Simulated scan of single mutants.
Amino acid sequence: MYIAMNRFRIAPGKEEEFIEIWRNRDSHLEGVPGFREFHLLQGPSDEDHTLFTSHSVWDSEEAFVNWTKSEAFRKAHANAKPSTDIYLGPPRFEGFKAVL
């Protein structure tokens, strides 16, 4: 199992707009070989940002990497236009292999 996560720092007061972007997004993940599940998680809020992470579970790192090279990936990200008043910098990717 492989977990792919992107951490997002979101401007205070923009949390609902960020959630709506993800709610209305066509991820093109259904039917992708090796894809298991996706979650958008909201973390703690500080004075300057709220932390979110996108969390996808894959059969393997290879399945995830193959998706990033696929037409489904290109379609999922075709309309991604980060709004500078919502995002406080680019997302930070973190990948994890299950070891136990």
Score class of each variant (00 low, 15 high):
residue 93 F to K: 11
residue 40 L to N: 08
residue 14 K to N: 06
residue 66 N to H: 09
residue 54 S to L: 02
residue 27 S to T: 11
residue 10 I to S: 05
residue 39 H to I: 03
residue 95 G to P: 02
residue 52 F to H: 12
residue 58 W to N: 03
residue 51 L to E: 13
residue 8 F to M: 01
residue 70 S to W: 04
residue 89 G to P: 09
residue 69 K to N: 01
residue 53 T to Y: 09
residue 18 F to T: 05
residue 98 A to G: 07
residue 48 D to K: 09
residue 94 E to P: 02
residue 36 R to A: 10
residue 78 A to D: 07
residue 77 H to I: 02
residue 3 I to K: 01
residue 56 S to V: 14
residue 50 T to D: 11
residue 90 P to F: 02
residue 50 T to I: 10
residue 88 L to W: 15
residue 44 P to V: 02
residue 47 E to T: 14
residue 90 P to K: 07
residue 58 W to K: 05
residue 23 R to C: 12
residue 18 F to L: 09
residue 38 F to T: 12
residue 24 N to P: 06
residue 94 E to G: 02
residue 30 E to G: 15
residue 77 H to R: 02
residue 62 E to S: 03
residue 60 S to W: 14
residue 57 V to F: 08
residue 35 F to Y: 06
residue 46 D to Y: 08
residue 77 H to W: 01
residue 27 S to D: 12
residue 54 S to V: 08
residue 29 L to H: 03
residue 80 A to L: 08
residue 13 G to W: 05
residue 92 R to S: 14
residue 37 E to A: 14
residue 22 W to F: 00
residue 33 P to V: 13
residue 85 D to W: 11
residue 99 V to G: 03
residue 23 R to A: 13
residue 37 E to Y: 12
residue 74 R to H: 07
residue 68 T to D: 11
residue 41 L to F: 13
residue 69 K to L: 01
residue 61 E to H: 00
residue 83 S to F: 06
residue 69 K to V: 00
residue 83 S to W: 02
residue 12 P to R: 09
residue 38 F to D: 13
residue 48 D to V: 04
residue 3 I to G: 01
residue 21 I to Y: 06
residue 19 I to E: 14
residue 49 H to G: 06
residue 78 A to N: 06
residue 12 P to L: 11
residue 63 A to T: 03
residue 88 L to D: 11
residue 61 E to S: 02
residue 28 H to T: 06
residue 82 P to T: 03
residue 34 G to L: 08
